[in-house]
């Protein structure tokens, strides 16, 4: 079982302004603003990292225990996936053919 990688919904437009990400979702005309740590998580979601890997990076960058970083990352990812801002993609190795 391969872990899903997190990737931004390609239909969105987003920009980091002074370290905080603003996401525009044209489909439902909503602008989402993320705080600094959520922005960090968002910017690590490049299609190559799992929530667990992102939580490790979060704990390395911020004053937080790895367990708390993992729980908070999972909670945020669930929220962003529910809003269709983040998508889970299969691991790159698992999706290759040929």
């Amino acid at each position: 079982m391969t872990e899903p990688r997190l990737v931004h919904n390609p239909l969105l437009a987003w920009r980091a302004i002074e370290g905080e990400v603003v996401i525009i979702s044209p489909e439902d005309s909503v602008v989402h603003e993320l705080n600094a740590t959520a922005s960090f998580v968002w910017m690590q979601a490049n299609g190559e990292r799992t929530p667990e890997e992102i939580a490790v990076l979060l704990a390395a960058e911020y004053e937080v225990a790895p367990e708390e970083a993992l729980a908070d990352t999972r909670e945020l990812v669930a929220h962003l996936e529910a809003k269709r801002l983040l998508l889970s993609s299969p691991a790159a190795e698992g999706s290759r053919h040929g």
Partner: peptide, 10 residues
Amino acid sequence: GKRKYIKPAC
């Protein structure tokens, strides 16, 4: 070298 942590949120 570590930044102050706040819970990630929208």
